[in-house]
Amino acid sequence: MSSLVAFVAGGYLVPLALVAIALVSAATGGVARRLASVSLLLTLPIAVSVVLVSALTRAGTEVLVVLGPFDVTREGVDFAGQMLVRLFAISTAIGLFSLTTDPRAFVFDLERRGLSPRFAFVAAATVEAVPAMVTRAGVIAAAQRSRGLDTEGSLRARLRGVLPLVGPVILSSLTEVEERSLALEVRAFGRPGVRHLLWWPPDTAVERVARWLIVAALLVLVAVRLAGAWPPIP
């Protein structure tokens, strides 16, 4: 929801406010540092390309810097900045959700609401993926550092270490997904029919009201945007 709001609202203020809300919420839950690192991990690869493409190729009237064949315009930098804060708003929202939501409770709640167990599992696996990948990345970094990979040196040395760090994360994740799907199938996960749930996650009245208020806020925002009473998206 926060991601949608960030995109619908545009500009800097709302996405930055969402980032601040996510960080304050994370600090309350004691996961602020982890959220910051997860958010950077999720955002940086996309952010670098988005910022470069936007700043270097977007046409504009006011040229700030000329870099070889590229004109860096004020409009391009502004667009890149707005995209960047939106990306951070999205990544902090996803990161906060994955760091503070019990995947088991999430799956049970989705199933309770009538979602197919297959879809529920895919959703839970997605939520679990981020913290699991952070842990896995830590082990992989330790293994590669033991082979002399310098992760504490210059920027060049660190860039050289990207493939040895990212490669095993992706490959071992793919292997695990395959093993996990086989393990599910041998335990009759694909069997058709209704499941009996043994446990429901707690869901207080306050939480239910808060959820509807967020949905209402989004609808209001969309209406305001459609009515043209908000600065246009660049």
């Binding site: 082990v139 992989i140 493939l163 095993p168 490959l171 071992s172 292997t175």
Partner: peptide, 9 residues
């Protein structure tokens, strides 16, 4: 390390 898949790239 124990798990080879945590280092092979």
């Amino acid at each position: 390390f124990q798990d080879p898949d945590k280092q092979i790239f």
